[in-house]
Amino acid sequence: MRHCLGLFLLLISAPLAAAQLTLDLGHGQRQWQTEQLLKHPQARAIDIPKDVAYKRAMHYRAVPLASLLEGVDKDDHLQAVALDGFAAEMPAGPLLQPGPARAWVAVEDPHQPWPGLKPGKPSAGPFYLVWTDPAASAIRPEQWPYQIASIRRLAPVSERFPALLPAAELSAEDPVRQGFALFQQNCLVCHRLNGAGDAQFGPDLNVPHNPTEYFQPGYLRQYLRDPQSLRHWPQARMPGFPETVLSDQELDALIGYLAHMAGRRR
């Protein structure tokens, strides 16, 4: 019994295991180990005053993401995949810019682990995409993926998943097209639609039914603004989209896209 207790105490006091970040940028895969990134020539300490995942000020050792994106062009499209299947679709341009909004890969040191995101939950590590001065480029919360396992270069969403496209006859200025862009930024990270998408986390938003078909309009807006105000359960993970993230006009466009796609179920 004493031996077992000693082994248990040793296990819970042991540091976290080092992790691996896989980059697949179209010219073969490269793996970066935790220790390599912590010692990267451009690694530095950064302060994030309003961290999206922790909702408070945080301090990290981080590497500029652009320094890892060898061969990537500003017009390319990247996808960050998290350990839980969360898949963030991101144009490469903002990720490559040197500032004022700048993307960093924060690296969790196994010997100095980050706090859990909630009591009893894991941290945002081992790798977390964070931004300095995000307001300068209107960076949205979904552009802060955490628990990242891999980053890969892919064709744009519209080419990979034609089942997500609105009707071709819509004009370029139609709000539904803006809604489609907002859907890619804010919803596709967790959800699929018409079976299309890479995320494994949330339910499909058109099959078998579309939210605009079973939510009254006012309740749908309330749900998107603050899901817990309408459906409360302890393990809920869907974030709300306050006006600082989606304006009323943008929310209308997003709902308009969903309603439009209810007529394009596949």
Rank of each mutant, 00 (worst) to 15 (best):
I48S: 01
Y60A: 00
W131E: 01
D252K: 15
P119Y: 14
L25T: 06
R264W: 01
H40K: 14
I48P: 00
G6C: 10
A18L: 04
F86C: 00
Q36W: 10
P15F: 15
Y60S: 00
R225H: 13
A163C: 04
A135R: 05
L95W: 10
T132N: 03
C187N: 09
D174F: 01
R153Q: 13
M90C: 08
V157R: 11
A17K: 04
P211D: 10
P227D: 05
Q178W: 10
A80P: 01
H59M: 02
G263D: 09
W114G: 05
L170G: 01
D248H: 12
Q185F: 05
F183H: 10
N186L: 09
R61K: 08
Q79F: 10
K50H: 14
L38Y: 03
V52P: 02
D248A: 15
R266G: 14
K74Q: 06
I139V: 15
R152S: 14
I46K: 02
E213F: 12
D204R: 03
G256A: 11
F161H: 10
K55D: 03
S229C: 02
A168V: 13
H40W: 13
P175I: 11
A62Q: 01
V105A: 12
A88I: 10
I255R: 12
L7A: 14
T244R: 13
W144G: 03
A53G: 04
R264C: 01
E89L: 07
S171Q: 03
P126Y: 03
I48E: 00
N186P: 03
Q79M: 15
E108S: 05
A124T: 02
Q97Y: 10
P217C: 12
L246N: 03
P119D: 15
T22I: 11
Q97S: 13
R237G: 14
H191F: 07
R221G: 10
P100L: 10
A57Y: 06
L7E: 12
F180Q: 05
E89T: 11
E108N: 06
Q178Y: 07
P175A: 13
Q42P: 01
Q235M: 07
V81N: 09
L23N: 09
L38N: 05
V130N: 03
A43M: 07
P94E: 04
L188A: 12
L170C: 01
M58Y: 05
H40A: 15
L188Q: 12
L182G: 06
G85T: 08
P64W: 02
L21M: 04
L21C: 02
Q143G: 06
I139C: 04
Q112M: 14
L164A: 07
A236T: 06
L220A: 05
P242L: 11
V245H: 15
R56T: 08
R192Q: 11
P122H: 10
G85H: 07
E108I: 09
K74E: 03
G26A: 08
R266C: 12
A17H: 08
R225E: 14
Q235H: 07
Q222R: 15
K118I: 00
A101T: 06
L188M: 13
M90S: 07
S67R: 13
V52E: 15
D24A: 07
E169Y: 06
C190I: 01
R61E: 00
A199V: 06
Q31P: 00
P100G: 03
F180G: 00
A167S: 14
L83Q: 08
R225P: 02
R160H: 15
R237Q: 15
E142C: 04
L129G: 02
W144Y: 12
G120Q: 04
V130D: 01
W32H: 11
E250Q: 15
